[in-house]
């Protein structure tokens, strides 16, 4: 069903939803030096900030940067307690597609579901923010992530009245007081920025590994991993144990985001590193984002074109530019 409502009307809907759900949306943040848009808890429509791309991705709602997996005490491991409340996430198509990429890894890969992700994911409801124009630096249409059908409710926000398309019948009661209307969310036709995608076979890989563009792109990379941290589809993690009390041997096993651009990501015992420098790591990341993931899951590219990695890199290294250069280099070769 479709509905029309004023902004205060949406506030009333959100207030009612807030009784059962925690609502996460892009919102103004004064963390950091300059004002930013970041994902956070909101209670009213006015707190939702739509004037730009959020600096961070919303993946922390289902995959927190730091998460206690187990507590151990007296020689026993016990699962950490689950947060009982449901979560509603206001997200644009790129990020909704990004969450579907995370689902592939955490819920499908290896044929087994990962418990801690699953636990949060099952409580997640998606409120799609219709996105018809995108922002500077994003390129979702180039990677086919400009459309998202997997949502509970879709909303047109930001221009006077709010329109809603309710797909999940569980949410109908919340909108019953609103005026019915026809609404289906549209999708962006093309971004200001386009990125060409490379096409190649496995047999081309040795030649691709030898291209100079990896070294050129990664020359100034400091291995901070910010590009991985902001990426909605980066799902890698490390686990660490933290001790509270040596005598009782009590503590917890946590997991934290890890990223393939960090130097120690693939370091093995004996000090060997399978990817010896930033160029290797850049090549690994790019090929995974626009080739390997798709090869494995056949479900679109891992990169959903949000452009955050480019915006966040302290050294102005362009991931999207590197993808485009790879496409160019392969075109020249054939």
């Amino acid at each position: 069903m479709g509905y029309r409502m004023s902004l205060p009307g949406l506030d009333r809907v959100m207030a009612a939803l807030g009784e059962t759900y925690d609502i996460y949306a892009p919102t103004a943040s004064d963390r950091g030096e300059a004002p930013q848009i970041r994902y956070g808890r909101v209670e009213s429509a006015r707190q939702i900030e739509l004037g730009g791309q959020s600096a961070d991705s919303p993946k922390s709602v289902v995959f927190p940067p730091l998460q206690t997996m187990f507590r151990f005490e007296g020689g026993r491991f016990e699962e950490s307690a689950a947060d009982g409340r449901g979560r509603i996430l206001f997200a644009r198509p790129c990020d909704v597609n990004g969450i579907l990429r995370l689902d592939r890894i955490f819920l499908e890969n290896g044929g087994r579901r990962e418990y801690f992700y699953d636990r949060l994911r099952q409580k997640l409801k998606i409120f799609l923010i219709e996105c018809l124009e995108g922002f500077e630096g994003c390129f979702c249409a180039s990677v086919g992530a400009n459309q998202a059908d997997c949502y509970d409710v879709a909303l047109r926000l930001g221009g006077g009245d709010v329109l809603a398309a309710v797909k999940n019948p569980d949410f109908e009661p919340f909108f019953r007081a609103c005026e019915p209307c026809d609404f289906t969310p549209g999708s962006l036709r093309g971004n200001a920025k386009t990125v060409r995608l490379p096409a190649f076979d496995d047999g081309d890989l040795p030649g691709i590994h030898a291209l100079p563009l990896w070294g050129e792109a990664a020359e100034n990379c400091v291995g901070c991993g910010s590009c991985n941290a902001v990426c909605i589809s980066c799902s890698c993690f490390d686990t660490t144990d933290v001790l509270y009390d040596e005598k009782g041997l009590s503590g917890e096993r946590r997991r934290a985001w890890a990223g393939c651009m960090q130097e120690d990501f693939a370091l093995v015992a004996g000090g060997g590193n399978v990817r010896k420098d930033a160029a290797d790591r850049m090549r690994f990341k790019v090929l995974h984002k626009v080739h390997g993931f798709h090869r494995r899951f056949g479900a679109g590219h891992m990169c959903v074109g949000c452009g955050r990695c480019d915006a966040r890199c302290p050294e102005d290294i362009s991931f999207s530019g590197t993808v485009d250069k790879l496409a160019e280099a392969l075109k020249n070769e054939s």
Partner: peptide
């Protein structure tokens, strides 16, 4: 093969080589 592994169940990403997971 030996690779760095955190999870051994295809989730942590450490062991990956292109689209292949060494742990799987």
């Amino acid at each position: 093969f030996e690779r760095k592994m955190s999870c051994a169940v295809g989730k942590c990403g450490h062991c990956k080589i292109d689209e292949t997971y060494v742990c799987l």
